[in-house]
């Protein structure tokens, strides 16, 4: 961070003003901490609810945020309810949804990589007519929220009678213009043009230059594209909702959690009355919390690349 650099240099100056606990600094630290607490408070409470028993939540016991109400028996019961959801027709449908989501998210991320790395390289380091238009279309597709295309995509997939199957979702998720832009920036900054020129003089063809020179130095881009694409795919709701709702066991977890919500006696007593499985807040929270675990794993794996990628100015909602 540049601010860190500034402080190091400021340390050399005799004033030392940067380190002093003046009113401004106290106000800043206090305010930022307060905002952080506002962010953390509901999240901690939410993850605690996931670990409590139905009775403890219903009675409102457990003290501050219900932390005292955490019980292994409650967790075991909640997990049993989640896993029993779906009945005998679609046993363990929760796990099926997780598996489906892993399939579409991983396939989508691999396709995004296969598409993004070579095209990002070509856009960054090769000269060809029409490049400007490919770039403009990519940037436009990147800054437009991807949900605006969902209904058109549904109409397209419906036209080929593939609604309710997973593979169209995975293929569509492979279209990840942000990944192309990330790779484009990566090759522009990390790969000197001279390298391409030198490889040409050595007699390498354009395709081989990409595979032998560019690809080996694209670890950073691979990590970023894979991470952002995986997370976007994992949390995508509207696309699987439109394309997969018609088939109960072919849904992804985000659409599945919607089914859990609509089967909960908390919100839909009439539907829930006919079900053996009772999904109260602890069950819903646990099902949600478990569904975020894969994202946590990829986050931890990719985190050292993240701050850089997140600041490429290409975040989309």
């Amino acid at each position: 961070m540049s601010a860190t650099g500034a402080r190091v240099r400021a340390g050399g100056r005799p004033s030392g003003a940067v380190r002093r606990w003046d009113a401004g600094r106290i106000a800043r630290v206090t305010f930022m901490t307060l905002v952080a607490l506002v962010f953390l408070y509901p999240m901690v409470g939410f993850f605690v609810v996931a670990l409590r028993s139905d009775a403890s939540v219903a009675d409102g016991t457990g003290g501050f945020l219900g932390i005292g109400g955490i019980s292994p028996a409650g967790i075991a019961h909640s997990w049993h309810e989640i896993i029993s959801y779906g009945g005998s027709d679609t046993p363990h449908v929760y796990l099926t949804w997780i598996g489906n989501t892993i399939f579409v998210a991983v396939t989508g991320a691999v396709l995004a990589l296969i598409a993004a790395l070579p095209s990002g390289y070509a856009l960054a380091r090769l000269r060809f007519p029409g490049k400007r238009y490919v770039l403009i279309v990519t940037l436009l597709a990147m800054v437009m929220p991807n949900t605006v295309l969902v209904i058109p995509l549904f109409l397209e997939v419906n036209a080929i009678n593939a609604v309710g199957t997973l593979w169209p979702v995975a293929v569509i998720m492979g279209f990840f213009p942000f990944g192309v832009y990330l790779s484009y920036i990566h090759f522009r900054t990390a790969m000197p043009f001279e390298l391409v020129e030198a490889a040409r003089i050595d007699g390498l063809g354009e395709i081989r230059i990409f595979f032998q020179i560019a690809l080996p130095i694209s670890k950073q881009a691979v990590a970023l594209v894979a991470f952002f694409s995986f997370v976007a795919n994992w949390t995508n709701f509207f696309l699987p909702l439109a394309l997969l709702t018609s088939s109960f066991s072919e849904q992804t977890i985000s659409v599945g959690i919607q089914s859990l919500i609509s089967s909960s006696p908390l919100f839909n007593p009439t539907t829930a009355a006919g079900l053996n499985v009772k999904l109260y807040m602890p069950e819903l929270a646990l099902a949600t919390a478990i569904s975020t675990v894969p994202m946590l794993i990829v986050f931890i794996v990719a985190q050292r690349f993240l701050i850089r990628g997140q600041t490429l100015g290409a975040v989309k909602g």
Binding site: A116, P118, A122, L123, F128, G205, E206, I207
Partner: peptide, 12 residues
Amino acid sequence: EVLGAWTLMVPY
């Protein structure tokens, strides 16, 4: 170079 560029962009 032009051919290589478009070839590399085919998947995308």
